[in-house]
Design a protein around this nucleic acid. Sequence first.
RNA 1: GGAGAGGUGGCCGAGUGGCCGAAGGCAGCAGUUUGCUAAACUGCCGUAGGGGGAAACUUCUACCGAGGGUUCAAAUCCCUCCCUCUCCGCCA
Length: 428
Amino acid sequence: MYDLRYLRDNFDTIRHQLGRRGADVPWDRLRTLIEQRRALAGQVEQLRHELKKGSDEVAKLKREKQPADAPMVAMKAIGEQIKTIEVELRTVEETLTDLNLRIPNLPHASVPVGNDAGDNKEARQWGSPPLLTTPAKSHWELGEALGILDFDRAAKVTGARFAVMMGVGARLERALINYMLDVHTTQHGYREVLPPFLVNRSSMTATGQLPKFEEDLFRLRDEDYFLIPTAEVPVTNLHRDETLNENALPIRYAAYTPCFRREAGSYGKDTKGLVRLHQFNKVELVSLARPDQSYEELERLTGHAESILQGLELHYRVVALCTGDMGFSAAKTYDIEVWLPSQNHYREISSCSNFEGFQARRAGIRYKGAAGKKDAKTEPIHTLNGSGLAVGRTLVAILENYQQPDGSITIPKVLRDYMGGMERIKKE
RNA sequence: GGAGAGGUGGCCGAGUGGCCGAAGGCAGCAGUUUGCUAAACUGCCGUAGGGGGAAACUUCUACCGAGGGUUCAAAUCCCUCCCUCUCCGCCA
C-alpha cells in the first residue's frame, strides 16, 4: 500500500519500477480513481462547511426565538446533496483502497533485476559440504529407519503434508527451538515473544498476506480468524496503530511459533519429507527500525540467522533475491540456503527481508523523534523479519549432513546439552 | 453460554441534541520567582487530510471504540458489530 499523495506525485516512476516485478496493476484505472477521490472529497468538504455554518445560524436564531425555517430547509437540501456525493466517494475510496492494498512493494535500488530464482545473486558461502563415504540418504529415509519420523501415521491422523516426530526426533526439534531462542535472546538482543497462533483479518492485512493471498491461508469456519503462516504476522502486529519513541528503536523480537500454510498451487512439489508441510515450526526474528538504519539492520538480522547455521556447522550460502523472485511486501530479501546432500543442492532455510515502510503504513506503526527535538515528525517505521531458522528444515539439514554410514546421526555439538548429553541418534 | 456495567485527548475524568475538538486535574514542555532541591505562578500542550505562506503560522474538513441511521445540527438519540470489566455457568 502506498501513501496516496506519494503515489500521485510519483505515479510514473512507481509504475515503471514495479514493471520490473511483473506487477499486474491496473494503472490507468488507479490514476482515475485517485483523481476522482480527490475531487469528490473536495466537494464534500466544501458542502459540509456550508452546512456547518447554516446549522450555526439556525442555532443562533433559535436562541433568539426567531423563526429558522428558511435556513433549515436550505440546509436539508445541502445535507441531501452531501449524502449523494458521499455514496459516490465511498465507492471510489473502497475500490481505490482495495487496489492500493494489492500493489506490491517497490524494490530497493540494490536489488538485482531479474525474472525468477535463476537471476538471484549469491552474496556469500560459509563452510563446505560434508564428506560422506556412502551415497547420501534422504532425511525421510533416515528418519523413518530410525523411528523418529512417521509420515504414514501423520497422513492417517490428518492428511498429506503433515508429519509426526517421535522420541529423539521430537526432542531434537525441541532442542533446536530452544537453541535458536537462547542464542537470539542472550547473544543478539532479541526479546522473546510467544504470540497467538490465530490472528484476525486486520493483522493479516497489515503485514500483506491479505487481501491478495487469502487462498494460501487456513481460515476458521466460525470466526474470521486465520492460522498464522509465520510469526511475522502476530509479532509485527504487536505494535499496530502505535506511535513508538525513536529512543526505543530498534525493537527486536524472537518468537517461536508453528506456521500453517495451505501450499495452494504447489501440488507435486516436495511431496516427501519435512521440506514442505502444512504445519511446521519456525523461530522468527522481527525488528522495527528507524528508516535510516533499516538496511544496516537487515544485514545484522541476516547475520543473526546465519549464526545458527554456523553454530550447527552446516554449510550454506546467502543469496540476494532478484526483483522477480521477491515476495509481495518486501523491498529487499536475502535467502539463506542450506546444503542438502541427498538433493545435491542448496535449499532455502531462512528468508530475511526489509519491508521498509510498506507494512508500517498498512499497520499504522510510526515513530516520533525524541521529545524536545525540533524537527520531530511522526512517520512510518521500517519493519524487518527473517527466519532464525525454519526448524523442520534445520532438522532435515542435520539428518542429511550428519548421517553416518550405518544410518545413525551425529548430534551437532551445540545441541548436546539440550539433548541430555546425547551424541548420536541410533535406531530406538 | 446467561445476566449486568462500560469504552471520551499520554493518563484520570466531566459532558444526554446547538460556539464542544471537547471543562477540570495529572503528566509533559517553555518561562518567571528561588541559594540548591522542592514549591508557587504564567503560557503552551491531540491526530490526520486539504488550501494559503519561505517560515513562525493561518484557514477548512474529519476524528469522543468501529460502522450505519435519525436530525437543519450528534460525544450526546436509535440500530449493528468489536473490545474491556463484574457475577453465574463451563473449562485447561
